[in-house]
């Protein structure tokens, strides 16, 4: 995407019925950012993700993709924006009746005219990138928890999205695979120019690869900090500092 701000959130309030989860969110994701949404369990990170990917309309405020009001454009435009997003759900959400290869091939067959041979090649490349080369014929039920996570990331990457939204990619991954995933994210940004929005609790990832962030607080139900997490460790809100240093500083 050429626009400077592929994603901009203005005065966003998200709620389940009457129950407000987060209010007055304002932040901007820049092209090429690795943007992290930080917050304690239950602070509303996954819920925010849902309204960023078109699953749950916000109660107030706007979500702008390249300046387009995601929730108020016409249906065709809404769908067009969605097609440029790659989404990895917290629970994986792989289609259980399809093999891994079929899981990845489905969006490719749906939205491109590539020949079956090339689709197969893309599928095996993406599986290899997440370290699952050779697992194409497996059903999701035959994989370990961490493998499911990685497979679901591969599916999110299938169409080379402009923005990849990832909910807790590294929870349940062993340290080596978590490290590999960080490298993969960096590589996707370098090579394909993908902008990444991720939710994670992994401090090494937050401090190692993320250059921008928003911090959601569960108590006050709004954001209490934003910006580069490396700086927030020293200068941010006390709650943020406690979080980023595991309460040890």
């Amino acid at each position: 995407m050429k626009a400077k701000h592929p994603l901009k959130i203005q005065n966003l309030t998200i709620a389940y019925g009457e129950k407000v989860i987060q209010r007055d969110l304002n932040f901007t994701v820049n092209t090429g950012d690795i943007f992290v949404i930080i917050g304690g369990n239950g602070s509303g990170k996954s819920t925010l993700m849902r309204s960023l990917v078109g699953l749950q309309p916000p109660t107030q405020g706007t979500v702008l993709y390249e300046g387009l009001d995601f929730w108020n454009v016409d249906h065709a435009e809404h769908e067009r924006i969605k097609r440029r997003l790659g989404v990895m759900f917290q629970g994986g959400a792989l289609w259980s009746s399809l093999t891994l290869a079929e899981n990845l091939a489905l969006p490719l067959n749906q939205y491109t005219d590539l020949s079956p041979g090339l689709v197969d090649e893309i599928v095996s490349l993406k599986l290899a990138l997440v370290g699952l080369a050779g697992y194409g014929d497996f059903y999701p039920a035959e994989l370990s928890g961490g493998m499911k996570k990685r497979a679901s990331l591969a599916r999110a990457m299938a169409l080379d999205p402009d923005i990849l939204l990832i909910d807790e990619p590294s929870a349940g991954l062993d340290p080596l695979n978590a490290r590999h995933l960080d490298n993969l994210i960096l590589e996707l940004r370098e090579s394909l120019g993908t902008t990444i929005v991720l939710v994670t609790h992994e401090l090494p990832s937050i401090l190692g690869i993320c250059n921008n962030s928003v911090f959601l607080d569960a108590e006050t139900r709004t954001m209490i900090d934003s910006g580069n997490p490396k700086e927030a460790v020293h200068s941010g809100d006390p709650k943020v500092r406690t979080f980023l240093t595991r309460g040890e500083a």
Partner: peptide, 18 residues
């Protein structure tokens, strides 16, 4: 670089139930 990353991962010679 992407090719190198994909090739670095070991290929599992396992068959799924299919």
């Amino acid at each position: 670089q992407l090719l190198a990353m994909a090739e670095a991962a070991p290929v599992q010679k396992l068959a799924g139930t299919g």
